[in-house]
Amino acid sequence: MQQLTNEIRAIARKLLREKKVEVVIGFERGSMPLRSRPCFIRKEEEVNRLFWDGFCENALAVYLPKRKERAAIVAKGCDSRAVVELIKEKQVQRDRVILIGVPCRGMVDRSRIESSAAPRRILEMREIEDTLILRGTDFEETLKRSEFLHESCKTCTHPNPVLHDVLVSEWLEEKNEDPFADIQTFDALTAEERWDYLNKEVDKCIRCYACRNACPLCYCPECFVDASLPQWIGKSIDSSDTMIFHLMRAYHLAGRCVSCGACERACPVGVDIRKLNRKLVKDVKDLFGYEAGLNLEQTSPLATFRPDDTESFIVNP
């Protein structure tokens, strides 16, 4: 980890020194064990704040749209895909962003680590290769990092940055196994069971909109839930309103969601938001052979009109 951190710092220092960028968006150590967090570095003397470990879970691309400064961004596979989508959607200019690509071995889910250690409290954590060494007041324990990854990271098929200007560390082997086993299980349920499941999940929602705000592709100047003239949906946690928020958001991300999992990680109450998003990711892949954010050339299926489109879903739903 220290080596990656050093490489990122060196790159950031060079970019700032040569005035290639005005800001480097990366991660720094958080205020607690098992936490790393976004940071903005504008001065060369501050680059040592930059840090890299298995808890750099935020989708930093969320900070790019509307940014006036020329920026460099530390990008995992998913982050780079989000940047690709943002460039295609004209929210980010390719020549105003530098991607510091970091092949990613998956980010660690701190809540899993905490529950495995509970009721003991973790006061310090060190990460060496695939091991996490936890220390509390009266214990030390070693865990296997790969067993505690976030759900979104477990099913990730693009750990390497798909677009980068500088690369940190080495390319990782990409898994080709089908990541959609969970969605197949979900698809196999009856419509009623699926509806019950979604209702149960959505009932936890407190409408804090952390999912939306953490999402790099949710950048609408006015979200439909915030519209007041007309007001499309109710403001409360009435389950029908909450459901509409989640369904509409999922549809709005169809063919755009890069499966970074930022929504689910931000959710404070554990709503299985990715179920809907991934279902649509799979549908888009099955129907159009398209995966969001893999390259700058491919046009987004839902932003395309083709006269020869069979539109079989209309003719033969």
Partner: peptide, 25 residues
């Protein structure tokens, strides 16, 4: 505040935040 995402987690989970809105359904 530069990293703030602008979500409502801090206020909604807070035991003392009490701001509210009135709406007609």
């Amino acid at each position: 505040t530069e990293t703030c995402l602008g979500c409502g987690i801090c206020t909604y989970l807070c035991p003392t935040c009490y701001c509210f809105d009135l709406c007609d359904e």
